[in-house]
Structure formats: structure tokens, C-alpha cells
């Protein structure tokens, strides 16, 4: 466990190689066991922001996870604390079988194979996919892929879960199952989403991104109302 705050971001700025300013001075704090929804239009910097939280992108300013500064020598430790679930599960499931895919993280961290497989089975059971161990990831349905990808993240026992549009590609029952599953997980969560129902169901607090800045930070319901961010206004990414 680590102290407060779990994540602290001070004046984060980032430009893509073509000069586009993607993040323009972002300040953000996350406390333990808190769930925050990131709202905002397409291209407002939500995903870019998420990629900074485990050092996949590094801009100007300061990002700290559990007190550790996000910089090269801390990356391995930080990536174990921060579990990132990508928007497209096909990008996250790259091993030949489900079990091997979930065991990828521990194996890369040098955990002996038997122990890595035991943890992988446990993580698969946690998301209700224990039966799928030997299946190939590309034979799974969208909902199953999402669960297996989540198991691949949970297996590292992260302190914070970062979810980028987790309900993309899921049908309504799949979305309901995912919400129920995420509710059971004790970790702090940051969820980038256009799905206001998901935001309402899981988060107490929301921040609103616009042109690379956080323009508002407050209770979910208040932000959804203030920005007219109800379902009819939201569109898929």
C-alpha cells in the first residue's frame, strides 16, 4: 500500500511530434479507493493523460504515483501499481492462449512460471473466466475479451485501475456485467468514458477535459448537467 495521494499530477504539458498541444497544464489528484470519471469531447486529451500515468508518454510537469516520480528508473515499479486497461482488447491480448496472456505480466516481472500461472488462474476466476484458460484470445466474444484483458491487469495486483472507454464494443448485458465486476474491485479507479451511465454507476467525482485542460472538477451528476453531457449528446469515440 502507499500513502496519500495515490496519484498527483502538477502542471502536466504534452505536445505530439507534429506540434499539437494535447495537454496544456493539467493538475489532478486521486485518493485511495476513489473512483473518478474523465469526461470530455473526443480529442480533448483524456487518453493522452491516461498514458502519462504509467509513463507510456512523458511530458513536462510532474506526475507522481504512490509518491514515486514517473521517470525511467521508477517505471517498472509504477507499472505494477498502475493497471491500464486499453480501449481495444485486441491490442492487449497478444499471447497464444488466455492463460499465457494473463500470466504475461508476472512472467515479465520474473515470477517463476508455476507461481505466475497460479496467479493468472486466480485472476481469471476473479473476472469469471476460469473456464477459458486454454482458449485462444481471438475466439472470445467482445465481453469475454474485456474480462480477460482485465484479468491480465488485475494479476499484477495494482493499486489503481485505469480504464479507457471500458464499455466500447459491449452489448447492454455485457456493460451491466462489467459494471458489477468493477464495483466489486476495491482499487481506486480512473475511467475515461463517453458513457454517462457508466460514470454515474461507478464514480462519485468527475473531471471534464476540454482542449487538453481540466476545466471542471466536481460531483459526477453536477458535471453531466452543467456540460449537457447526457446520453443524447454523447457519441461513440
Amino acid at each position: 500500500m502507499c500513502g496519500e495521494p495515490l496519484i498527483e499530477v502538477v502542471n502536466l504539458r504534452f505536445r505530439y511530434e507534429d506540434g499539437t498541444a494535447a495537454l496544456d497544464g493539467v493538475d489532478f489528484r486521486l485518493s485511495a479507493s476513489e473512483t473518478v470519471a474523465l469526461l470530455g469531447p473526443n480529442g480533448s486529451g483524456k487518453t493522452t493523460f491516461l498514458l502519462h500515468l504509467n509513463g507510456l508518454l512523458q511530458g513536462e510537469g510532474e506526475v507522481r504515483v504512490c509518491g514515486l516520480k514517473v521517470e525511467k528508473q521508477n517505471l517498472a515499479a509504477i507499472r505494477r501499481k498502475v493497471g491500464l486497461l486499453f480501449q481495444d482488447p485486441d491490442e492487449q491480448l497478444f499471447m497464444p492462449s488466455v492463460l499465457e496472456d494473463v500470466a504475461f505480466g508476472p512472467l515479465s516481472a520474473g515470477v517463476p512460471p508455476e507461481e505466475a500461472l497460479r496467479r493468472a488462474r486466480q485472476a481469471l476466476a476473479q473476472v469469471g473466466m476460469a473456464e477459458a484458460c486454454d482458449r485462444a484470445p481471438y475466439h472470445l466474444s467482445a465481453g469475454e475479451k474485456r474480462r480477460v484483458a482485465l484479468a491480465g491487469v488485475l494479476v499484477a495486483e495494482p493499486e489503481v485501475l485505469i480504464l479507457d472507454e471500458p464499455t466500447t464494443y459491449l452489448d447492454p448485458p455485457g456493460q451491466r456485467d462489467l459494471v458489477a465486476l468493477l464495483r466489486r474491485l476495491p482499487q481506486a479507479k480512473i475511467i475515461a468514458t463517453h458513457d454517462v451511465n457508466l460514470a454515474r454507476a461507478l464514480a462519485q467525482r468527475a473531471v471534464f477535459f476540454e482542449r487538453g485542460r481540466i476545466v471542471s472538477d466536481g460531483p459526477v451528476e453536477e458535471l453531466i448537467e452543467r456540460f449537457g453531457w447526457d446520453t443524447s449528446a454523447a457519441s461513440g469515440s
Binding site: L56, R80, Q92, M95, F104, S108, P113, L117, V153, A156
Partner: peptide, 24 residues
């Protein structure tokens, strides 16, 4: 583009340049 995204997903899960075989 997908290749870059997959690589990012691997890094996010602690990829250190080598995929360990499960069954020795």
C-alpha cells in the same frame, strides 16, 4: 498503428524485451 498500440500495452504490463515461455 495497431503495432504501436500493442507495444504500449506490452510495456504497460511490464514487458522487458523477452516473452517468457510458460511451460519449460
Amino acid at each position: 498503428r495497431r503495432a504501436e498500440a500493442v507495444y504500449q500495452a506490452m510495456l504497460a504490463r511490464g514487458f522487458a524485451g523477452h516473452v517468457e515461455p510458460v511451460a519449460p
